[in-house]
Write a protein that binds this DNA or RNA. Structure first.
Length: 591
RNA sequence: GGUUCGGUAGCUCAGCUGGAUAGAGCAUCAGCCUUCUAAGCUGAGGGUCAUUGGUUCGAAUCCAAUCCGAAUCACCA
């Protein structure tokens, strides 16, 4: 039980015995006491003044007296200032915490709760390589999965690959027209980048053709529809759908190149999936659900044969769910896939990590599922995250302002190498150990940078200022861990009699924060927000560092004190490692 | 125009289920390596929490209005 929870319980009990009234934990607030006051935790008693019809001063004094007499083992003293009841917690409480958890690698994690959650993330298109926005998505999805696991959920990570459609055909047409049979092997270009290059070439050529047509007197709208390369692409999509062998072969070949490229990137950034869905397999799903919807009168068929749902009563618009030619649209496929996930995995919750530009779409998806009375409708949750923008605004592939994922990863690793070499602390590492270290630090800096911000908010990335390795960063926490490990290699942990130890303020600060780790994990899960953990871990590392510079561990005043501090250091290292792991970040033993 | 989200230090962000003098990091300035890793620590300067009004013992936090910014409102995915 957390200290805050314990205090709440004691206060409720004391109020009951004092005034004979029942209160719940929500009727008053417990805060950490501000450093300028005496005490550890504070009960804010203003909210109790009215129901008890007592003056704040009387209430505070009475409650403080009862708490310290009835729970003397937990509270050693109190003071009352202007409505704030500051309580001092017995040192034995923290000694106990240390004793039980200093070597507990599972500290803060919950037992399995029997709930199954699917989390869909990454979801790339196979016509271009991954960029910075995908990185935020991948890190978020992976981290939220880990956080939920730590809270006792069984988690399935899934990915839907958008591997078909007009945008894929654009790359294919451009490759046919301009590539002269170029392959990743023949050019030495990573497969996803090669295909992406032809996607760009398509757009260049398309723009050129439109300009030519307009110059010859055609209206811009007509030119956009009639540019030869666009007509070719549309024909290719029809050929693909009819299974034209030549088109299918090209499609498989080029997608194969892309997947090889993605594999390299995913491996580098540490993303993986338990289940991968391909849109080419799922795009026909959902049509039978539309039929059900028609018979339930949830959907309406228009004279031209197209099928719609009217969402105007819910403040939204009319939405098409089936084209007049009977083919399905985006939303139809998503309903089908939601059904498939539910059938295959029997999940209790389905989380979609998708950018906030799709808030409307996801709202519609859930609403349609609810109107159809589908059993999983209420389990759909859109984990919406903000775009990563540049100081100049949105990233635009056409203007070449996209920050490529592979480039950024490489840049981070190079920067980690540069810093490490300048500091020269690991000169005895062999080349393989060095590469692992550079990767750990570089990726750590990047992941922490993208995860430390509230997912809901859009964030700004300035490519001119490289991602920092000092301060509120991944390497700062990694460094704190490595430093502790260095001590633990030299000083063995042994058992000791700690019953008489008292804590110094800086020691107590670290223990306070360690105690809050379980709450941080729970909060992060509740809000599906890794930044809660990132902030917590930074706070812990910072407090440990303050303690570390002020007090020696190896040369502590007494041997018991030394053991006590070693336990604190050990527990801090475990928490940092465990918490960083939930962010997808490894911590090195040395750096 | 409708809907949704956002506006906190020079910059990037915490804090938002109302609580004591609004916090970090970066950047700037001043200190700290002959004992455990200085990717660290200590300190200083830097704020009209977009604006106005309301709710109350108390508002960055809740409510309303206004201003500014973004996303979205496709027979694209």
């Amino acid at each position: 039980m957390s200290i805050v929870h314990k205090i709440q319980t004691c206060v409720v009990a004391s109020l009951q015995s004092l005034y004979g009234q029942n209160f719940s934990e929500k009727d008053f607030q417990i805060n950490q006491t501000k450093p300028e006051f005496e005490g550890d935790y504070t009960v804010v008693i203003f909210s109790l003044v009215k129901p008890l019809k007592k003056s704040p001063d009387v209430l505070g004094q009475e409650l403080g007296t009862v708490l310290t007499t009835q729970h003397g083992d937990l509270f050693t003293g109190f003071n009352f200032i202007k409505g704030f009841l500051n309580l001092s917690i017995a040192d034995s409480y923290w000694l106990d915490l240390l004793q039980h958890h200093h070597n507990d690698i599972c500290f803060g994690k919950q037992a399995m709760n029997g709930q199954k959650v699917m989390i869909e993330y990454s979801s790339p298109n196979t016509n271009k390589p991954l960029h910075l926005g995908h990185l935020r998505n991948n890190f978020l999805g992976w981290s939220v999965a880990e956080i939920l696991k730590a809270n006792g959920y069984e988690v399935f990570k899934s990915c839907i690959v958008n591997d078909r459609g007009i945008h894929i055909c654009k790359s294919m047409i451009a490759w046919q027209l301009f590539a002269n049979g170029a392959t990743p092997e023949s050019t030495g270009i990573k497969g996803d980048h090669l295909v992406g290059d032809y996607y760009v070439k398509f757009n260049d050529e398309y723009k050129k053709q439109v300009a030519t047509l307009v110059a010859n007197g055609m209206s811009e709208a007509d030119a956009e529809k009639n540019a030869p390369i666009m007509l070719q692409t549309q024909q290719m999509l029809l050929d693909w759908e009819s299974g034209n062998p030549e088109v299918m072969t090209l499609w498989k070949t080029m997608n194969g190149w892309v997947y090889e490229g993605f594999d390299v990137t995913y491996k580098a950034i540490g993303s993986d999936f338990d289940k991968t869905y391909y849109e080419s397999n799922t795009y026909l799903l959902g049509k039978d659900i539309v039929q059900q919807g028609l018979s339930k009168n949830v959907f309406q068929k228009k004279p031209d044969g197209s099928v719609w749902i009217d969402l105007t009563p819910d403040g939204l618009d009319e939405k098409l769910v089936l084209r007049k030619d009977g083919t399905s649209v985006y939303i139809t496929q998503d309903i089908g896939l939601a059904q498939l996930k539910h059938d295959e995995f029997g999940i209790d919750q389905s989380i979609y990590v998708i950018g906030d530009e799709q808030n409307y779409h996801m709202k519609v998806l859930k609403l349609i599922a609810q109107k159809l009375g589908l059993p999983y409708a209420d389990h759909i949750y859109h984990l919406s995250y903000g775009m990563v923008e540049l100081p100049t605004g949105k990233m635009k592939s056409r203007e070449g302002t996209v920050v490529d994922a592979d480039d950024l990863v490489q840049e981070m690793i190079d920067t980690a190498r540069r810093h490490t070499e300048e500091l020269g602390k690991v000169k005895d590492f062999n080349p393989e150990e060095l590469n692992t270290l550079f990767h750990t630090i570089g990726l750590g800096a990047m992941k922490f940078y993208l995860l430390r911000v509230d997912p809901k908010k859009k964030m700004i990335f300035n490519p001119e200022e490289s991602i920092d390795f000092h301060g509120f960063t991944g390497p700062f926490i990694q460094y704190t861990h490595a430093r502790i490990k260095s001590i633990l290699r030299k000083e063995p942990l042994t058992s000791f009699d700690n019953s008489t130890e008292l804590f110094l303020p800086l020691e107590k600060q670290v223990l306070y924060t360690l105690e809050q780790f379980p709450a941080a994990i729970a909060d992060a899960a509740k809000e599906l927000n890794p930044s809660v953990l990132a902030n917590y871990l930074f706070h812990l590392a910072k407090q440990f560092n303050s303690f570390y510079t002020e007090h020696s561990i190896g040369n502590a005043e007494t041997s018991n004190k030394k053991q006590l501090r070693l336990q604190m250091a050990n527990m801090t290292a475990h928490v940092l490692k465990s918490g960083m792991q939930m962010l997808g970040i490894a911590v090195p033993e040395r750096m």
